[in-house]
Design a protein around this nucleic acid. Sequence first.
DNA 1: GTGAAAGCGCTAACAG
DNA 2: CTGTTAGCGCTTTCAC
Lengths: 349, 349
Amino acid sequence: MNSKSHITLSDIAKKLNVSKVTVSKALRGHPDISKETTKRVKKTAEELGYTPNFAARNLSSRKSNTIGVVVPKIAHFFFSAIIESVYDTAFVNNYDIALTVSQENAERERKHVETLLAMGVDGIVVSVSQQTKDKAIFEKVLDRGVPLVFMDRVMEIKGTSHVTVDDRGGAFNATEQAIKNGYRRIAHFGGYKEINIGKNRYAGFADAMKQYGVPIDPELVIYGGFGESYGYEGFMKLYHKGKLPEFIFTVTYPVALGVYAAVAEVGMKIPDDIDIICFGNSNISRFIKPEMSFVNQQTELIGKTAIELVLEHIRDSDEFKPKHVQIPTELVLRETCVKNKRVDAPVSF
Amino acid sequence: MNSKSHITLSDIAKKLNVSKVTVSKALRGHPDISKETTKRVKKTAEELGYTPNFAARNLSSRKSNTIGVVVPKIAHFFFSAIIESVYDTAFVNNYDIALTVSQENAERERKHVETLLAMGVDGIVVSVSQQTKDKAIFEKVLDRGVPLVFMDRVMEIKGTSHVTVDDRGGAFNATEQAIKNGYRRIAHFGGYKEINIGKNRYAGFADAMKQYGVPIDPELVIYGGFGESYGYEGFMKLYHKGKLPEFIFTVTYPVALGVYAAVAEVGMKIPDDIDIICFGNSNISRFIKPEMSFVNQQTELIGKTAIELVLEHIRDSDEFKPKHVQIPTELVLRETCVKNKRVDAPVSF
DNA sequence: GTGAAAGCGCTAACAG
DNA sequence: CTGTTAGCGCTTTCAC
């Protein structure tokens, strides 16, 4: 704000010879006010170039019409896709978004939540950082009576809603697909096992291996992170050990991309020399050859659902019971994980 | 907000037998207040779980400590990288960011700017949508005395600062590199020519072609958009026409990625059958083989500079003269655009 | 259908 | 160093 004098409700009121209250109500389309007056008010507001003052509005109404969001990262397809959907969903519902980025840092996350509270947001949506252990700040949110929804990366706290992906089921399907193609030496690049998605995707992998009686080789289960470099390094480690698997199931698309690069570097070919599938997707996957098969996690739906859940909670704040929504996955087959490995000795179940 | 009663300044004041003002000042570390009192105040604030009310603070101080940002898209590396840097820079300066997304829609952009004004942000940073023609909303921002900075995609409006990339110079360097490698039939996939970056990158391309006396074949200059699909379609169009160039210079990394996919599909090889370079980069480029050479536009620096410029303007609102900062580019050579096309007939200049 | 009074929680300006 | 007074611009009763 600055020196320039602003037009306020009173200015409009004066000009129209009505009270502030009438103007305020008219501007918000309150049914108290006659169509006639409402029209006149809106017209002069327009003419005068009136801009409402949200700080004043929020202070007196004790609502902000804003949903606070905390994500660990932006510059990664998974999150940026979710965020875009979060913004779109808020937009159609006439809500604003206050977005903050923790950069995978728990302390920064805590500060951001404090800020959102101070801003008086009507609800908060969080995807926690990799570090986050302490629940205190989230309990503070609940204490304040602010609806809280976790998205993808969750904390188990009573009173909060969750939107998660069916990680275990999706991982099961991917692994099963590999097994049905005849693969037996199957590796899993799992990200971080401390985080729910790492844990659950491993579980789905293990489920499938067990169900089909395929042994898990612990040396082929590799952790380290969710980014490209971990895929690259993981592959190289196995390669240099001389312990290459026939197949790799990765916890994220970026990890798989790292594997692509490593495989190319050592002069091997996907899917003939080593085959692969991943959990998740990317906007560019259509343009990376061979086009990878993947477990689709419907990012758009995740963001949309999270926002709709907070809104539901906000609007229904007495009745609302926290919900745990699980977004189903879809196995999408492209050019990897589609050929039968052992043509000479087909397996059937 | 909700039923739960909040702790306010008065509560702390009462408990400590001082006035609200003292508490307010102490909490903000105002030098008026003694160390002793400040300490006590902060301690009880902590104990009581005090959360400041920004709406009240903003209303009374007429500042929001927030910078509004409008970008056309999030789920694209270029913007998400800038946004991350915008957030980081604001964070170290103790400012909040109010981010909005226009989705390349001028009307939505206008609404978002109105919202930011209503929120009373202290400054605004905008990267305009592809559609934007009307300057009115931005002039309104200036009218209100709110500092305005354009970032990458700019509008020519007096009183605003600009952060742009040296598009023309970078495009020149890329094209020159191709020419020096012996290429003559050079195509340019240029995005949209209506937008400054499309215009300027073409200009740099044309500069180089002219300077080295290489004719531009109009059929090899293709427009359509900044995304992958335009690269794919552009290549296919030329391919089916039987008018393939030796070399393509693309306006963005995604466009080049589309070309990669198309080239692979028709069974050709980069860089041997057709060579390429692009303007811009992506977080995944290291993992796409052959690794593309590119014009680096230092996304991080763009976001950082934009925020620093608004802050400078905000802090110095009388003295400040709008600045036009141009971020230099760097030609980064990897595995494309590095071999001399005509080994038998080397060219020199 | 309209308006008067009161106050949201905080900070600015000044006085002591 | 501390406190008093006033008011930011709006919405919420509740009376008319």
